[in-house]
Amino acid sequence: MSQDVLLDIKDLAVEFSARRGRFQALRGIDLTLLPGQFHALVGESGAGKTVTAFTILRLLPDSARVVQGCVSFQHHDLLSMSGDVLCNVRGREISMIFQESAKYLNPSMRADRQIMESVRFHLGYSDKAAWEYTRDLFAKVGLPPDRETLARCPLEFSGGMRQRLMIAMAIACTPLLLIADEPATALNAGTQKQITGLLRKIRLESGMALLYMTHNIGLVRYSADYISIIYAGKIIESAPADILFEEPLHPYTRLLLACIPGWNKRGRRLGEIRGASPGPGDIPPGCAFHPRCPLAQPNCRETVPPLVRMKKAPHRCACFYPGKEFPQA
């Protein structure tokens, strides 16, 4: 690629140690993010989206261990960076917003102070300048920029407002990359669209790249530039959004897209994928999807299909039979 890659994750594998033993949360993540790109990472709960996000910023708990792979940001290895250098990356170059805003915001600290501490540390603003900057940020994310609201504590805000507050906190120092871990999941449908719309708007204005984790592929259909599908800790398909929707290759992706409710499918049964996603503890051998796959063959059980480039590059797929016709049931 001629363009300078912003974030490059290669073959990332992360392991957790629990009382029952060790289990693989990530089994090989390959992800490339370009500057200014809206990259959606789509997967079910437990597939490894949050673990990926936390690994990038090294927020994992002590029980987690990166077994292999590398994460490089602007060609700097994030995983081996020292703590001091990492502090300059976090919040300044790469920011993150989390799923449950109520839990991730300090309940007894004023909203403006929570933003100001970041701005004062990274950008060196004075108290007064930081406050004014915060007030402008509030307006930018759609929060009332008045003295009273700024002085409120996070739990005095509604869910949607809290999420906007988190976004404000994350974009305060104009990072190059924003990692959004299912920011809209805990909100109602109307607010979901608003928040996703807000992120898009901010992205367009600042040229910030967005790595958006979600389990709802329909939500990012028209806003994402690039989509990667994650299943059981591995990326199984990755393509520009329009190509993915037009010509999905992996059976999981195809079944997933068939499940999206749409007004043009009125009157028909909702699609479903039989079986359940494997948890980190019991991932099947070979291709993790093979027990649920209509195309499964004996070799799918034996070998893990690698993520390879398809004929229509940059489309990548991890399947031995990409795009094959489903057998008529």
């Binding site: 990492l86 502090c87 976090r90 919040g91 920011s95 989390f98 449950e100 915001l105 300090n106 970041s118």
Partner: peptide, 21 residues
């Protein structure tokens, strides 16, 4: 608690931030 994770993700110096929050 999770808000400590958020505070760390903002890149503020580790021990002092955690303590203060």
């Amino acid at each position: 608690r999770q808000y400590i994770t958020m505070a760390v993700s903002k890149g503020l110096p580790d021990k002092m931030t955690r303590c203060r929050h």
